[in-house]
């Protein structure tokens, strides 16, 4: 159990809520909550950190594949024109996705393919960073740290923008790859609704945290 041992002179109005609202034994409900949830908070921060590391590995792998501009793998949705495949002579399967390997892409398609490959990982890493920052703030008892609120805001915006940018860029990249074999589809604007809803949800949580930060600021120094 976390026990804060304090004397009156140790405390100022600029101190954390933890310090100012401790009971006679120096223990607050927040301190108790943090103590109870410490393991979960640490797991959240650790998972975020591991996801960032995994994201870095995937980023490097994708860069190594794409940067030479030779046999660049581009996923192509075949949903519009599903293809039947014969698996073992009698069993058939329907292919809805394929990977086309393209080389010597022009600068614009090359940039689109690069962005389409990297953006999902970068978005995932941002969310992971957000969880790590939140985990660290919660662990120190500073729930409404400016850093956490800002990170949440950036992540929510990234998710909402990513929900449009990622599928659209992937569609454009697929079109670019198909164009190299003289198959043309018109560009379409797509939305990843899961990402979009996640962004909206995080945006709502961000709004609540922003209000909380303002309330905390208002009550600091209130006697």
């Amino acid at each position: 159990m976390v026990v804060f041992s304090l004397t009156v002179e140790d405390i100022s109005c600029f101190d954390s809520i933890d310090k100012r609202y401790a009971d006679d034994d120096g223990v607050t409900t927040m301190a108790k909550w943090i103590d109870d949830q410490r393991q979960n908070i640490e797991v959240m921060a650790l998972a975020g950190g591991l996801a960032v590391l995994a994201g870095l590995v995937v980023l490097v792998r994708d860069l190594v594949r794409i940067l030479p501009n030779r046999d660049v793998p581009v996923p192509v949705e075949l949903a519009k024109v599903p293809h039947d495949l014969l698996l073992d002579g009698t069993t058939t399967a329907q292919a809805t996705e394929a990977v086309i390997r393209v080389s010597d892409l022009n600068p614009v398609p090359y940039a689109v393919v690069l962005a389409a490959a990297l953006l999902p990982t970068i978005t995932l890493m941002l969310v992971a960073v957000c969880f790590t920052v939140l985990g660290r703030s919660f662990r120190s008892g500073d729930f409404f740290a400016r850093r956490s609120v800002r990170t949440m805001n950036v992540t929510a915006l990234t998710l909402v923008l990513g929900s449009v940018a990622i599928p659209t860029l992937q569609g454009l990249a697929a079109d670019s790859a198909l164009a190299t074999v003289d198959i043309e589809f018109g560009p379409t604007l797509e939305i990843d609704w899961v990402l979009f809803m996640a962004g909206l949800l995080l945006g709502t949580v961000w709004h609540a945290f922003q209000r909380g930060a303002r309330l905390q600021q208002d009550t600091e120094g209130l006697v």
Binding site: V8, C13, L222
Partner: peptide
């Protein structure tokens, strides 16, 4: 004493100390 006042007023010693040392930004 500050502790006795805190007892009588029903405010924590910590908050009274904040007030006493001119560190309060607002008072109810």
């Amino acid at each position: 004493t500050l502790a006795r006042l805190a007892e009588l007023v029903g405010v924590t010693v910590v908050n009274l100390s904040v007030l006493k040392n001119d560190r309060a930004k607002a008072v109810r």
